[in-house]
């Protein structure tokens, strides 16, 4: 095998770190499940996303070694969030602005087994 000394690029992680991170991830999963049972209205999704992002950060920093990564690779990965934000921002904000025109005023009735009824409603609308 190789006798080269240029292998300083391997950074084995300690088992303690790995296990601690795993424990934290499981803990956060439990937290998010428990949190979901409280009805917090509009905040709910943001709290859920915050917890998910915490977990994501743990995975990224420890499991994916983002801490030891070259700055350029970190930039590459985080640039994706910028472009994702552009995409989501542009599409969502536009959709919100025109959603009034999007939704039909009266949709067809819920019962799928009553097509006759649906036809009647449609006729009535016209």
């Amino acid at each position: 095998m190789s006798d080269h000394s240029d292998h300083g690029f391997a950074h084995p992680q300690s088992i303690t770190t790995l296990l601690t991170v795993f424990a934290a991830l499981v803990f956060l999963t439990i937290v998010t499940v428990v949190q979901a049972s409280f009805h917090l209205g509009n905040w709910e999704i943001w709290i859920a996303l915050f917890i998910a992002s915490l977990k994501a950060a743990l995975v990224l920093y420890f499991f994916m070694h983002l801490g030891h990564e070259k700055p350029f690779n970190i930039l590459v990965f985080f640039s994706t969030l910028f472009f994702l934000a552009l995409f989501l921002g542009g599409t969502l904000s536009d959709r919100n602005a025109y959603r009034n025109q999007l939704e039909p005023d009266i949709d067809e009735p819920y019962r799928s087994e009553a097509p006759a009824e649906a036809a009647e409603t449609a006729a009535a609308m016209e």
Partner: peptide, 8 residues
Amino acid sequence: DPVTYQHF
């Protein structure tokens, strides 16, 4: 929503 398709 077809406009969404165009955005995508």
